[in-house]
Nucleic acid binder design. Structure first.
Length: 415
RNA sequence: GCGACCGUGGUGUAACGGUUAACACCGCAGAUUGUGGUCCUGCUGAUCCGGGUUCAAUUCCCGGCGGUCGCCCCA
C-alpha cells in the first residue's frame, strides 16, 4: 500500500519475494529437480528471459490469446518487440535448431527458468513462476515417451509423494486427431472440442453430452473408447518400469497447439485439490519454425507454485535450517576481533560460523541466534580467551558442554 | 477481459453512525554493565485513496486502487 507518498513494500502484482526461508524451500525444490534430471543423464542449459516477440506468434492459431494478451510484450529502445518468455519450449527449440549439426542425439536437456504470464493471479497461478523443463530430442521411439513420463513419476516420488498421491493421465493427439478427421470437423468445432475436453469434470455430464452431440460426436466414443495402440504400448512399458499409476484418459488435451503425439498430465488425487499439477507431451514439428526439418521431441514442464501447494497440503516440505552452524556471541572490549579469529579458524575447517557484532546485550544476542534457527552457540569473552575453554550450547535444548577452544572444530563436526 | 466477496498498526482480530479506534502476537526499551526461549513494566505503530449522505463516517452510498476466490485461458 502506498501511503503518504511513501513507496509500497509490496512486490509487483502477481510476483513473489523470496525471503530466506522461502528461498531455502525453493532451492530444496530445485535441488531435487536437478538431482533427478542429472541422474537420468540430462544436461542443464539456460537462456535469457527476453525473446523476440515473434517467437510466440509464429504458430498456434489457437493460442493467439497467449501471444497477444497473456504475455509481457514491449518495445525496446530500438523499436524491437520483446517478450518475457511465457514458457521455455520455444526457446529450447530455438537453441537446438541453431546448433542442430553440432549436437548429438538423442539429446537430453533440462532447465529451471522463470517464465511470465500476464494474467489475473489466483490460487496456484501467479505472473512469474519457475518451471523445470525436461526435454528429450531426436527420438521417435515410444521409449522416449516412456522415459519422459517415468521422469515425471520419479520426480514426484523424489518429492516424497506415494503413487496414491498422484495419477498420470495419458492421451494422444493422434487419438483426438483421428476423431476429428473421422467426423471431418471444422476448425471451429475442433476448437470447441478441445475446450470441452479441457473442461471435463467442471461441467455436468448432461451438459457435456449435449455439447458433444452438438459438435457431432457421440459421447460413447469417449466413455467406451479403448486406449489407442500407442497409449496401450506406453502404459505397458511404464508398468514394467515400475510406474503403475498411469492410465488412459481421453479428456487430456493440453493447451498448446504444438503437441503432435502423446500428451499427459499429472493429477493430484487429493479430494480437495483435484487438479492438474503439470504435464507435457510430444511435439515433433516445432523445429519447422526455424526452417529446419522436423525433429522428434518430447518433454514436460513442472511449475514451482503448483508443486509447492501439493507438498504443503501433504506436509512434505522440509523444515528450515540456518546455514550457520555455530553462533559466536561476544561480550567485553575487543572481543569481536577475537571472535572473528575463532570464526575464521572454524570456517577453514568447513564449519559455518557467524559472529555477533556486539551491539546488543548478551541475552539479546542469544535470543536472536535462537530465532534465526542456529543450532549451536558459544560466548566469547575475556574469560574464554584467557582460559582457552568455552561452553558450547545447543540452543534447542539448552544443554552445554565445556571444551577447549582447540577441540571446537572436531567437536562441531561430530554433529 | 468478466463475476462474487473483501480492504483497520508489521501480522491476526475488535469497535449500535457518537469521547482518546481496542486486544493479542511481533518489534524496541527496562527490571539485570557475562547468558535466550516463562513472567512483569513501558514505548513505537493503523481505519487504502477520492467524492457523497449526516451535526457526526472505520461503520452507509458511489467511483478508483488493491487483495482473495471463481470464469475465460492455462502452467
Amino acid at each position: 500500500m502506498a501511503r503518504n507518498g511513501k513507496l509500497s513494500t509490496d512486490p509487483y502484482k502477481g510476483v513473489r519475494d523470496f525471503y530466506p526461508k522461502e528461498q531455502a524451500l525453493q532451492q530444496h525444490l530445485f535441488s531435487i529437480m536437478r538431482q533427478v534430471a542429472q541422474s537420468a543423464g540430462y544436461e542443464e542449459y539456460s537462456a535469457s528471459l527476453l525473446e523476440p516477440a515473434e517467437l510466440y506468434r509464429a504458430k498456434g492459431s489457437e493460442n493467439e490469446e497467449i501471444a497477444t494478451q497473456q504475455t509481457y510484450t514491449f518495445l525496446d529502445r530500438g523499436d524491437r518487440e520483446v517478450t518475457l518468455r511465457p514458457e521455455m519450449t520455444p526457446t529450447v527449440a530455438r537453441m537446438v535448431a541453431a546448433r542442430r549439426r553440432d549436437l548429438s542425439f538423442p539429446l537430453r536437456w533440462y532447465s529451471i527458468p522463470n517464465v511470465f504470464r500476464y494474467e489475473r493471479p489466483q490460487r496456484g497461478r501467479v505472473r512469474e513462476h519457475w518451471q523445470l523443463n525436461i526435454d528429450l530430442f531426436g527420438s521417435e521411439h515410444i521409449a522416449a515417451d516412456a522415459e519422459i513420463i517415468l521422469l515425471a513419476h520419479t520426480l514426484m516420488r523424489a518429492f516424497g509423494a506415494t503413487e496414491n498421491d498422484f495419477e498420470i493421465r495419458i492421451s494422444s493427439r493422434g487419438f483426438l486427431n483421428g476423431l476429428i478427421t473421422q467426423h471431418s470437423l471444422s476448425e471451429e468445432s475442433t476448437k470447441k472440442l478441445h475446450g470441452l475436453l479441457d473442461r471435463h469434470g467442471k461441467v455436468s455430464s448432461q451438459e457435456e453430452e449435449a455439447s458433444l452431440k452438438e459438435i457431432g460426436i457421440s459421447p460413447q466414443e469417449f466413455v467406451a473408447s479403448v486406449a489407442p495402440k500407442d497409449v496401450v504400448e506406453l502404459l505397458t512399458t511404464l508398468k514394467e518400469l515400475g510406474c503403475s499409476n498411469a492410465r488412459f484418459e481421453p479428456y487430456i488435451v493440453r493447451g498448446f497447439d504444438y503437441y503432435t503425439g502423446l500428451v499427459f498430465e499429472v493429477y493430484d488425487t487429493h479430494p480437495d485439490n483435484n487438479r492438474s499439477l503439470f504435464g507435457g507431451g510430444r511435439y515433433d514439428n516445432l523445429m519447422e519454425l526455424f526452417g529446419e526439418e522436423t525433429m522428434p521431441a518430447v518433454g514436460f514442464g513442472m511449475g514451482d507454485v503448483t508443486i509447492r501447494d501439493f507438498l504443503e497440503v501433504r506436509s512434505l516440505t522440509p523444515s528450515y535450517t540456518s546455514p550457520i552452524k555455530v553462533y559466536l556471541a561476544v561480550t567485553g572490549e575487543d572481543m569481536v576481533t577475537e571472535a572473528m579469529k575463532i570464526a575464521s579458524r572454524l570456517r577453514a575447517q568447513g564449519i559455518s560460523a557467524a559472529v555477533d557484532l556486539g551491539d546488543k546485550k548478551l541475552g539479546e544476542q542469544i535470543k536472536s541466534a535462537d530465532k534465526k534457527g542456529i543450532p549451536h552457540l558459544i560466548v566469547i569473552g575475556r574469560n574464554e580467551i584467557d582460559s582457552g575453554m568455552v561452553a558450547i550450547r545447543t540452543l534447542a535444548t539448552g544443554e552445554e558442554e565445556k571444551i577447549a577452544l582447540t577441540s571446537l572444530p572436531s567437536f562441531l563436526k561430530s554433529f
